[in-house]
Structure formats: structure tokens, C-alpha cells
Design a protein around this nucleic acid. Sequence first.
DNA 1: AAAACAATAGACTGACTGGTCTACTTTAAG
DNA 2: CTTAAAGTAGACCAGTCAGTCTATTGTTTT
Lengths: 196, 196
Amino acid sequence: MKNNATRDKLIDSGAQLISQQGYNATGINAVLKTCGVPKGSFYHYFSSKEDFGLAVIERFATRYDETLVALLEDNDTPPLERLRRYFAAGREHMHECNHATGCLIGNLGQELSGQSDTFRDALNLVFQRWEQRFVQCLKDAQAQGDIAIRTTPEALASFILTGWEGAILRAKMLKSVEPMVHFETILFQQVLVPSP
Amino acid sequence: MKNNATRDKLIDSGAQLISQQGYNATGINAVLKTCGVPKGSFYHYFSSKEDFGLAVIERFATRYDETLVALLEDNDTPPLERLRRYFAAGREHMHECNHATGCLIGNLGQELSGQSDTFRDALNLVFQRWEQRFVQCLKDAQAQGDIAIRTTPEALASFILTGWEGAILRAKMLKSVEPMVHFETILFQQVLVPSP
DNA sequence: AAAACAATAGACTGACTGGTCTACTTTAAG
DNA sequence: CTTAAAGTAGACCAGTCAGTCTATTGTTTT
């Protein structure tokens, strides 16, 4: 009734195409073609392209949050090491996709937040959820005396997330993870440091 | 023959619309309508939409570089203060446009670098030019003993530019300059500091 | 077995896309 | 004054877009 294999195929194909080409540049017919589903099915499961886009976002966000929890809330690993692993995973993904996709949520935030408030709100929520994961990890690091937070954990989490998203964007343009490496280097060298 | 008032009108209207809606979401007819120019003129001055898009980028980049030079190479002002002013100007612009446009080059880099190598290369060049302006300003700051650069000026410039772009993107989604403020705060508090 | 509903199937629609075409007007040169 | 070119004007084209429609097939429920 709700969660069908066809529906899943549509969302997965959509996520892939939208990651590569963006939302506006991805036509419904293209999604249909790549997964061999007729149009009737599409409009059976989704009321509109926007509805579909929101489902793609939701699916991606849920999956991504799972890996985020696995990485950032791994209590067997020191908090700063968890962050290092998160960045390393991001870099690896960037290599895997040939510097082509980057972060779906960041991409869509850029493309759609000026176009539709519905999308903006949905994407914003995803980001806020992610930010909370970072806040928790930073608080852990602080509690263990690994870092001194001179503003607030929230401000620092915002700094890290926005900086990382910016680095991803630049990496996509440059077709090189260099900006991501620079970001990590300076972050760990000068920002995530214990009190002097 | 080349630089005509009609051509300028087209580029200006195009820049405005593309800033607000993105490249793909901006139709040629929409540009034509907002500036009252017939289609015949458009294809007289530009060979295609891509050609037009590149002209918009070039125009924007040139203008932006002028203000960048004015701000970052103002030798009457200490280097770090120049940077502060640059960020303040960016925040002001974000307010002026109601958190709607952000940075045209960043937007297009996001939207088009996966779609067209021509665009990617053009946008990349613009970013590299900007980065050089920051490198120079950071070297000035280093020479005056205002900051200690623990990596290279190039890496630090990359860090600043990507972080700032990320903050702008987030500000657009959040409809608030808060992420930009966080970025500035932590940057000046922990990264752009003299040697201990 | 029959009725009810979920799902598949794809032809079709009107609006809009980037781009072309021809005709007309203005400007400048010979 | 004539003529060629630059620029203006918009009707028009094929293709694509999101979305609709009707018809058919599967699967339950009664």
C-alpha cells in the first residue's frame, strides 16, 4: 500500500539522478526510463514532482543520519577521532563519485531554497538534525578535555558543518578533494584544540 | 557592435533572475520579458543560452573582483580589518536580498559544475582569482605579524573562502545570517591569530 | 465468483523550452 | 542617393516538461 518496491525504485533512481544533475534538470520521464516504471505508477505513488522530491530528501536524510549516528556516537572511539573518521568517509565518497555529486542536501538547499519554501523547510530540518549530532560529539570532546569550546557547542557545530559543506562544493568545482583536506587540517590544528 | 545597451540590459536582467532562481530555472523568455527585449536581439548578441550564461558570469565576476580589490587591497587599513569589512559587506548583502540570492558564482558552481565542463572551468577560474586576493591579504597580515600561518597562505585562503561560501549557503536555507556570524567569530578567535 | 481496490501501463495534453526564421528598421559608408 | 550591414521584431518550430486520462491487470475481501 505505501512502501512498495516500485516506490523504492523510483526514489532510488530519483536520488541518483538528482544527485548528479540537480532537481530541475532531472525530468520525471528520465527517472521513469532509468528504472523502467511507467508514468501511471509514478503518479500513483506521488502526487507531484515536489512530493517526489520531498520523498527523495526524506529517504536520503534517514539513511545518512544512520551512518552519522554510527560514526559520531561510537562511544568506543574518542570524539575527535570520530570526527576525523566522518571527514575521511566524506572524502572517500567524493572520490567514489568522481567529484560529481557531493552532498544531496547541500545541493538541493542551494538549488531550491530560493524556489520553494516547502523544500527549504524540509532541507533546513535535515541540516538541523545533523547539526545536533555534531553538537553531541563536540560536547563529548569537551567533557573529555580534548577541546576547549570558546563559543558554544552549537556555534562550533554550525561552523564545522557549513565549512565542510563549502569545502564539498568547492571540491566538486575543482574536481579535487584538496579543499576538503585544507579544511580538515586547519580545523584540527587551530579550532578543535584543548585550552592553552 | 559588441558592447551595446541592449546586450547590457540582457546580461543585467539575466544576472538578477539567475541569482534568484538559478540557471536552469531561468528561461530565456523570462529574461526577455523583464527587460523588454525581443528574442531576435538575444540571439543576435548570444549564440546560445550557455553563451549567455558565460557572459553573465564574466560580468558578475569582473564587477565583484573590483569590490574585492577595493576591500582587500586597501593599504590604509590593517589586513585583518580588511577581512572583517569584507565579511561585514557580505552579511549586509545577505540582508539586502532577504537571504534569497547569496553568491552567484557559488550558486552556479553548485548547479552547473556537474552539468557542463565549460561552466565548471569558467566558475573555477573565478574562484581561483578570488582566492589569490585572499592569499595576498593574508600574506600582508603575516608580514605585519598580525597572524601566524601554520599551513600555507593558499591553504588558509581556501579554508576561508570555502567556509564563507558554506556559511552563505546555510544562511540562504536558514533565512538568517547566523551561520555567517558563527563563521566570522570562530575564524577571528581561533584561526586568524598571532603566534602564541 | 464477484465486486472493490491497488497497481501497472502508456497515450495524450497544454504549457513552455531553447532555438530558428524571415521581415523590417535603423545606421553608416561609398 | 544607394547599398550593405547591424540591430530589432516576433511568429514559429520541434522537443520536452509536469501532469491527466482511460484502460487493463493483480490482488484482496466478501
